[in-house]
Amino acid sequence: MKTLAKKDINKILSIWSQKHDVLAPTKMDNGDCIFSAFDEKAFTLDYKKPPLSPKSVFFPQSEIIFRVEKNRYNEVVAAKKALIFGLRSCDMMGIRQASSFMSRDNKDIYYQARQNAAATVVMACPKAQNETCFCTTTLSGPVAKKGFDLQLYDIGDTLLVEIGSPRGEELLTGMPLAEMEESQAKQKIDEFLQNAILTIPEVKSVIDAMNKLKDRKIAEKVWDDFGAKCITCGGCAFVCPTCTCFNVYDHQQAAGEGIRLRAWDACLYSGFTREASGHNPRASQASRLKRRHEHKLLDYNNTDIQDGLCGCVGCGRCSDYCPVHIGTLEVVKAITG
């Protein structure tokens, strides 16, 4: 198996940066670590779960889809060659699920163009990033099964390199590679996996909650209570790697001139389903929370979830960031009460 020396990684990222917009774990002054443009000084391999998944590489928070000039429109498909370095397996699964959805039935060329232009280098997850990680339950970690171009295993001074695609192979051209004997590499990976799994225990209530949802055995009070607490910020949807709902806006800049753009939207907002007549099929916050969680745990599309468990990839960010504690973990706990 191919290996890279950890001390070379800065150099390698610099080389990749010549031909790609490289996003890599970057230390902020406040101690947080985010995916940001590769910067040799701020780059780190010692990072915890970034607050946002890299989904915005494919699906920006807002993007121009048409530019209108003299009442004529031109589509704007902007895709730069990108490389996401250091994403974890949960986020890789998020990308796989979202890509499946965006490419199915009617292909979304905006998403696809960005996706085709972006390489992914996964860092296999060495241990739970914090107490909300549950990728072993959602079958999305701690290592990625597929979808990546390269996957790296940090085994000390050395990174084992798993090649996932021809593009991954190409990325390694000219890099200072070494070789590790296959059986030894396999043993190292097994050890890595064992150690990682031990720190990410299975959350049985997720599966129990899915079954209860399937049997329609949930008291409406569960949703009513969450509905009363929710402050409708939409943050859970924005940090979620598999949430891809959007709204479309027009900005008129002059007569016959302007842009049409699309931007992240969230099913938690009351206007999300409101119809022209004023009728709203999801009129209460309780019904909107129910929808969000049922979409992840019950009404997901079987093709889109790939080899994962459901429409949730177990990254735990909704539980990390919801100001009033309505993440997937809190919801499944309430459901299984």
Partner: peptide
């Protein structure tokens, strides 16, 4: 009737179940 924003099954507004 639903709020069908994109019409092509992507934006999510009209989804139920």
């Amino acid at each position: 009737e639903r709020m069908m924003k994109c019409g092509v099954g992507k934006c999510g507004h009209c989804a139920f179940g």
